[in-house]
Design a protein around this nucleic acid. Sequence first.
DNA 1: GGACTGACCAACC
DNA 2: AGGTTGGCCAGTC
Length: 107
Amino acid sequence: MSTSNPFFKQVYAVVGQIPFGKVASYGQIARVLGSPRGARMVGWAMRHCPDNLPWQRVVMADGSITGGEFASLRRDFLLSEGVEFLPDGRVDMAACQWLRDNSATNS
DNA sequence: GGACTGACCAACC
DNA sequence: AGGTTGGCCAGTC
């Protein structure tokens, strides 16, 4: 499958490494993978979310949630995880954005 | 076989 | 302060 590309695997891997109660943005993940402009690819990968991928923790750079019909469901999941939300209906990125550990991603 | 689109983001004007 | 464009890669028409 074309989806077996390393890029996608890394996307899935990074998303799977997002700790409980934390969120990450598409662009952030893309940057981690080495493609600062590849946010769309991440989103595209999410669209093909394999199975056990906590894509619910993946939101937009400003904390907005997307995913069409599932967007509202994701917000509910995050609320259940203890993620703080702003009155705007966005995730409190300032408090809950996933700060990845250097030891995990750095060689 | 070419062009457009797509769960995006950031730079540029 | 707001709108447009470029860029990433792959899938679909």
